[in-house]
Design a protein around this nucleic acid. Sequence first.
DNA 1: TGAAATGTTGGGGCG
DNA 2: ACGCCCCAACATTTC
Length: 483
Amino acid sequence: MSDSPVIHWFRDDLRLADNPALAAARATGRPLVLAYILDEESRESRSLGGASRWWLDKSLRALGERIAAKGGALVLRRGPAETAIAKLLAETGAHAVYWTRRYGPARRIDERIKAALKKDGVEAQSFNGALLAEPFALKTGSGGAFKVFTPFWKALQASIEIPSPSPEPRAFPAAPQIVSDALDSWKLHPSMPDWSGGLAQMWTPGELGARKRMRDFMTGPIAGYADGRNIPSQASTSRLSPHLRFGEISPHQVWRAAQHAAEAGQAPVDQVQKFLSEIAWRDFSYHLLYHDPDMGRLSWRRQFEQVDWRMGSKAELEAWRRGRTGYPIIDAGMRELWATGWMHNRVRMIVASFFAKDLLVHWRKGEEWFWDTLVDADEANNANGWQWTAGTGADAAPYFRVFNPVLQGEKFDPAGDYVRSWVPELAKLAPKWIHRPWEAPVEALGSAGVTLGKTYPLPIIDHDFARKRALETYKTANQETAA
DNA sequence: TGAAATGTTGGGGCG
DNA sequence: ACGCCCCAACATTTC
């Protein structure tokens, strides 16, 4: 059995560097079977959205090429993970499976598999390659789960030990040749129509693309991150989210690089600290999801399931999705999402507030749209982001905090540059009117070539009315359950 | 990681 | 010169 192969089961860790599970598998010195399983059938596995499928396609291709260059092969299989793993074991004669742990509902799949493997005398080892601190490693003073970010962040900083990077395998020794699905046969890339042109322009999925993105950020924008991060017209954020989502880079790599940027004097310590706290929010989301696996579909504060949510008309939902609400900052954000698979975080909060407060539709429906269209959607962060804004989450904005899309636009996009780039039909409007075109004098609209209701919509809902409606409706739910 | 409503203050116009 | 009022600016409270 000493020469029997070890399987490294790739999941959301599509990288070779700093991958503890892969390094440990390689360190056994035994032949390595490198496998990815597309599991759309297990009950706990949420099927991927369109943008994620596009990304996965490119990321697997990149990973396969990197592995091939080192003499190995990436084996692709699809089906329920449990049966796919069993087949791989039978075909290869492997007696060990290594993987990187996951923390959402899918961890039940892993638990089942681990139990089944152990029963059959197969070694199963899992590793942390995805979080700075695993959800079960951090506890409050009273031994429970954290519900507030700040104490979580303090505990994380106090306990964190960043291990030195796990070595990247230099070569993959010969392993049993077994059949692999052709990646193209999975049809992850969209067709009829192929809407992915904007994504391809913006992103380079894969480990090398992730590293370049990180290098660019750490030698540039991080120095002004704390202030710049709120201005959507600036490229001040890292845009590492999809790379982290697919594990093309580890949070430990990001942490080390940020620390280095501070120590090397490339960026002020407070700016770096702010960035790292945002990386810690990612951990916090997983911490919450681990302790409430239903957080993806039910409000973390369960009383808000009682909110008298509206269904929303087809027309208004479609207006929101496609960026035709008549509120320029909302429309710019939703169009950025549609075009690039990504949206600046400040704008995510604004469009989510509009959805859950102004339209008063359950945040889950908005989460589902993000799930389908974002390249960085993961079950923890997408749900936590929506619940934060909707006011239903842990350490969330209070339910009565309602973003005013006009004021948010004027505060964070004062010149209107962001709106201009995504809503070109308003490009010629002066800064004074660009976030409130319906208040602009006819001359201003005329000279900008804007005809409200024709070239650009009137607001689909009056914010002042919607705000009051949301306050009353949320308040009722909050009181009913408290009583 | 709000916004709106309400309260307070102080400068300046004015009789 | 003084008191009164207005209201912008700022602070506090409420949702």
